[in-house]
Design a protein around this nucleic acid. Structure first.
Lengths: 350, 350
DNA sequence: GCGCTTCATGACACCGGTGTCCAATTGGGC
DNA sequence: GCCCAATTGGACACCGGTGTCATGAAGCGC
């Protein structure tokens, strides 16, 4: 029933030879037009471009990849459990890639596996990726960066602070963001503030912790060990970590959780114990994920521009290829903002 | 002539010619080994395979793609706003692809744009994709399926019910799942049950609504129009849709929301009005997203095996290529389960 | 032992682009 | 008008695989 219309179906069959024949030039000339070679007669260029436009010809990416030894694919490598972040990153990167000839290939890897390096190496070399974006905490792996350098694969590392090679980084300033959030708590009158830290080995966890301590130090508030609990960035870990904090006497009047999932855990724990939020306990999270507005009360949190950072990372990667001098200076350091919702109030007068 | 370090960098430089030379055979023979051609002497095969194993040779995907006219890339096409679902699907597909030579390329498209078809068409033809997985509601687009057929691109459609071409479907049985959920409410004694429906034009919304009506009909319960509100699968729409339901007098004693986001909206609305859940209002959602356990009380919901379905879809796609006769009969219809949490209780005795 | 078929293997063109190098064309200086 | 230099275009090999077809070797009946 479906008749193969060759008049219509010629689009996918068009090759550079067809264009060359139609334009009355050699295929190499067409190639030059496509690749914007500078040594070309303007007339010829216009003629060929017109034909390309009229026919809707698109060069075969596979053939280009083979001849060039490089694909027009961007890889996204992550070993991160945070789905919201991953998807926002994907969104940002895809926004930047939209309208270009680049496609996004995603590649989650097994955190902890010692085959990770080989895995990523075969990924980038086999597919001859144009470049990769690496999400934290994998992005903090310097050996990986070295390997990518050796393989001649471009890369951008997302992070919570500018690491040594700023050239390859797109980062947020978690430390300052958290310090601001805690300053907010202090300004409300809180003095006994608990921290639920992120997992060891995560740079973001460290940065956020340092921001927390910074704000306290500024205000001359000491931080007893008992007010710090370790979490794993998961809801469950936040729930259990907050238990020890809520058992304290006197109880902290506020808790900063290093991400929203854990903050939701704190809120849950508070509800289980009948502790009123924010009247008896203020909570601040980090990430501004949707969960902050689903729970009651909605959580005050720190928002960092994930999508914009993803976009910046992709632009940084392909910028050199597109050759846009203006875009190259895309900011690589992004700042965050405190989003005030309903989980913070002055402490109850004791 | 850039001098590459040939000592270490020999792995990426190995070609089929090298292997052929080392094995003392022609490149074509090596090609036959790689492609498991049946007309080959076992001895030769073993010899070549040993060399391939020893050298760690991997065929260049770009060259294969060019020669074959087909890439070893799977595309994931979606116009869906549900991030949890998208990520779970990605997870399932990637699980199936892991260890194979396939990679996953993601492609969100603009719902509503009338360029969608062209966009997807150029995506699959340009990249010469091996196949695509299409997520709902885009998967319900028959014109898209026809186009893919014409382009000779394999595809699998994810859905909430088996559409006409079961051959290309991997589906859950939303209707029956919702009917079960509502039967549970009825068994608890509920008679005035409200429905927050999904957006028009979504097959899943229709299926879930039909399941809802089915259970009511079975129990001989009539469904006044006022008990049905329209939502958009978003938290906000659930919140506002539930307003009209909660304004009713008598008020429904239970509400089924067609997804968890909207169920969370109902819960939020109930809290704003001081309606106790589940004592005064029972709520059931659909999807079993993390939000169900973050809110209080945790939401009873319907869980469908998204990851397993993603895996099945990918296997269905590449099964023919891998040539695994056993896997071909992967089930294409998946059933869901009711997850009982804390948002359902018998209605208050009136 | 001969001619036949059957099977395993190899030579070669080809997929659709790109880089190299040289020929053809053009323009300028004298 | 001539020569040289600069500019443009094209022939050709090449990227690294695969398909087609032919060739050589082995197996078989006679």
């Amino acid at each position: 029933m479906a008749k193969q219309k060759q008049d219509e179906g010629q689009a996918p069959k068009l090759t550079i030879n067809d264009i060359a024949r139609m334009a009355g030039v050699s295929k190499k000339t067409v190639s030059r037009v496509i690749n914007r070679s500078p040594l070309l007669n303007q007339e010829t260029r216009d003629k060929v471009e017109a034909i390309i436009r009229d026919t809707g010809y698109v060069p075969n990416p596979q053939a280009r990849a083979l001849a060039l030894g490089r694909n027009f694919l961007i890889g996204l490598v992550y070993d991160n459990p945070n789905v919201q972040m991953i998807l926002s990153m994907q969104k940002g990167i895809l926004e930047a890639l939209h309208g270009t000839e680049f496609e996004l290939v995603i590649r989650p890897v097994d955190r902890g596996s010692n085959l990770v390096m080989d895995d990523i190496k075969s990924f980038v070399t086999r597919q001859r990726l144009f470049g990769v974006v690496i999400l934290p905490p994998m992005s903090e792996n310097d050996a990986l960066a070295r390997m990518l350098d050796e393989e001649g694969c471009r890369y951008v590392r997302m992070g919570s602070a500018v690491l040594d090679d700023a050239e390859h980084m797109v980062a947020s300033n978690d430390r300052e963001a958290v310090a601001d959030a805690v300053r907010h708590l202090i300004a409300q009158g809180h003095r006994r503030i608990g921290l639920i830290a992120g997992p060891h080995g995560f740079r973001s966890a460290q940065e956020r912790r340092e921001g927390f301590e910074l704000a306290l130090t500024e205000a001359g508030i000491s931080l007893p060990r008992s007010l710090v609990a370790d979490g794993q960035y998961t809801f469950e870990s936040g729930l259990s970590a907050s238990e020890s904090l809520l058992d304290l006497s006197p109880r902290p009047t506020a808790i900063f959780a290093s991400n929203d999932e854990m903050a939701a855990g704190v809120l849950y724990a508070a509800r289980l114990r009948g502790i009123a939020v924010p009247e008896e306990l203020s909570i601040i999270g980090f990430d501004d994920t949707p969960v902050t507005t689903r729970v009651w009360p909605p959580l005050t949190t720190v928002r960092w521009p994930i999508v914009a950072m993803g976009r910046a990372a992709a632009l940084k990667l392909i910028g050199t290829a597109i050759g846009e001098g203006s875009e190259v200076n895309e900011p690589s350091m992004f700042s965050s903002t405190l989003i005030r919702r309903g989980s913070v109030a002055p402490p109850a007068t004791s």
